[in-house]
């Protein structure tokens, strides 16, 4: 076969040219990405304005318990004695027993501050992110309790499993230097 040797070199040449083009493309891309230093890692967070407290944060996370926990924005809290994040709607009395409180894992601590104010604290290791207290606070209170992804726990999956399930599409990517969405007081009514 007389055409065998030249065919090889043609193929070789093509391969080398393509390789050089590929290296140029990839290193150009890498240079572009690296030079744009401000594009930092993104992390998942819940937009509290969109959250509907459906309760799936507790069940859909790849972690057990979920990386989502309830947080308390104290500056928004009314410090009510009869807090509906803390108490059930229907209950035998106003005691703090399990039959009266909303939280299924007893993760909310109540402490007397001064008449008539009470402070509520989330005991985070106990919180499972079920949003029952958030729902109560949203419905009757100031919305000071809300869900956030806790970044000491979150594995930052490239596709968050809760984000996939979230019916309100409330999961958003935020820059890792500002990993929380803070609620602020609305005009007082």
């Amino acid at each position: 076969m007389p055409d065998s040797p030249p065919k090889r070199t043609r193929r070789e040449f093509l391969r080398e040219a393509l390789r050089a083009a590929g290296l140029l493309l990839f290193s150009g891309g890498l240079g572009a990405v690296l030079s744009r230093g401000e594009a930092e890692e993104m992390v998942w967070q819940i937009d509290p304005e969109k959250c509907t407290q459906c309760g799936q944060c507790a069940t859909e996370c790849v972690l057990t318990p979920s990386a989502v926990k309830c947080v308390h924005q104290y500056a928004m809290c009314g410090y009510c004695k009869l807090c509906f994040g803390f108490f059930r709607d229907q209950r035998p009395d106003d005691g703090t027993g399990a039959e009266n409180v909303r939280c299924p894992t007893d993760a909310i601590r109540r402490r007397f501050v001064e008449e008539p104010y009470y402070q509520y604290m989330i005991d985070e290791p106990r919180c499972i992110g079920c949003a029952k207290c958030v729902k109560g606070c949203e419905a009757y209170g100031n919305g000071a309790l809300y869900l956030q992804v806790r970044h000491d726990r979150c594995l930052n999956c490239n596709q968050c499993a809760i984000a996939t399930a979230c019916p309100a599409q409330a999961f958003v990517r935020v820059p890792r230097s500002k990993p929380y969405i803070l609620k602020t007081r609305k005009a007082s009514g």
Binding site: C80, V113, N142, G143, K186
Partner: peptide
């Protein structure tokens, strides 16, 4: 009416 502020901010007197 959720997410609206139902209760005014407390006026603490104990320096809380």
């Amino acid at each position: 009416a959720g997410a609206e502020e139902n209760f005014p901010p407390p006026q603490f007197t104990s320096g809380y």
